[in-house]
């Protein structure tokens, strides 16, 4: 099958790959580029485990064609910490015991980051709404909601 070139920025680094046309971004990230932080839970856009940020917006990488991401800026959870220092959301998830099996965590953090990027001081309802596309089957939603609210507070304190 003829390959298609794709090129995008992933967590600040330029990436270029030849892929089969029709390859999903999830597949390209995990199996071609080697960033396995987005997870494949359903491959049909219902669980949110594959969530990534494309040009500032939350996207399901299992429903996004890699070739549609040419020139895009993509962020995944593996790219959030800088020089070993955790992002405030990662710190808050850690401190709030907001992880259990961990499989939904990278997608949750992506959804939470887009929320805080757009809405720095969200209400609890805002958080619940923002995470509504992400399924945690360990059902640890409450610590996750608390972690996002805590991260928002620590962000606004840092900004003040």
């Amino acid at each position: 099958m003829a390959k298609v070139p794709v090129q995008f920025t992933l967590n600040g680094a330029e990436k270029a790959e030849f892929i089969d046309s029709g390859t999903t971004l999830l597949h390209a990230l995990r199996d071609k580029i080697g960033d396995t932080s987005p997870k494949g839970g359903c491959h049909q856009g219902t669980c949110g485990a594959c969530s990534v940020i494309i040009d500032g917006e939350l996207r399901l990488s299992c429903l996004t064609l890699a070739e549609a991401c040419n020139g895009a800026t993509i962020i995944t959870t593996s790219g959030l910490s800088e020089r070993g220092v955790l992002h405030p959301l990662q710190r808050a998830f850690l401190d709030a015991f907001a992880t259990q099996c961990g499989f939904c965590t990278p997608g949750m953090i992506m959804a939470a980051k887009v929320l805080l990027d757009h809405t720095p001081n969200p209400s609890r309802e805002d958080v619940v709404e923002a995470l509504s596309g992400n399924i945690c089957r360990c059902t640890g939603y409450e610590p996750i909601i608390q972690a996002v609210l805590t991260a928002a507070r620590s962000n606004s304190q840092n900004a003040a």
């Binding site: 995990r30 932080s37 850690l94």
Partner: peptide, 23 residues
């Protein structure tokens, strides 16, 4: 006493290796 979970740092950074993360 609360103690940090040893697996959480891997979970929040996306570094935890699930079986399908191998190629």
């Amino acid at each position: 006493q609360p103690r940090p979970r040893s697996d959480s740092p891997g979970h929040v950074t996306g570094k935890t290796t699930y079986f399908a993360d191998r190629n």
